[in-house]
């Protein structure tokens, strides 16, 4: 297995674990954590391709993209968790399958 492939496979597995968590868990916080895992897996792919891909050696595109992606992940988590806490105040629950009404 080439070095690039093994990183890609680890990233794929990490993505799959995050996806499975996001699809199956009932708690909204854990769903958010699963999404974070998927984002991290994507970052791992970016760095792996930056390291082993064929493009100019001094280009920092992969790294820069990951830095932006980390910033976006931070923003997403902050807003997502604020939403969850707000919903909890109204519904006293964080179980996603109990949020089945459009009315607050």
């Amino acid at each position: 297995m080439s070095p690039l492939e093994r990183y890609l496979i680890v990233a794929a597995l990490l993505f799959g674990i995050g996806l499975a968590g996001a699809l199956t868990r009932r708690n909204a916080i854990l769903v958010l954590a699963g999404i974070e895992l998927m984002l991290t897996a994507a970052n791992l792919n970016f760095i792996a391709f930056w390291r082993y891909g064929g493009h100019p050696a001094d280009s920092g595109t992969g790294i820069v993209f990951v830095l932006f992606s980390i910033a976006v992940a931070a923003a997403e988590t902050a807003v997502g968790l604020a939403l969850i806490v707000t919903i909890y105040r109204h519904r006293h629950s964080t179980k996603l399958d109990e949020f089945d009404e459009l009315k607050g």
């Binding site: 297995m1 080439s2 070095p3 690039l4 492939e5 890609l8 496979i9 794929a12 597995l13 993505f15 799959g16 674990i17 996806l19 499975a20 699809l23 390291r51 082993y52 891909g53 064929g54 050696a57």
Partner: peptide, 25 residues
């Protein structure tokens, strides 16, 4: 669904001939 996604990615990565095989950097 998650298993299917992982399976699809892993088989396509492992079977791909397009990926560079060694470090270019």
């Amino acid at each position: 669904i998650a298993g299917l996604v992982v399976g699809a990615i892993v088989t396509s990565v492992a079977g791909s001939g397009l990926l560079p095989t060694e470090s270019s950097r």
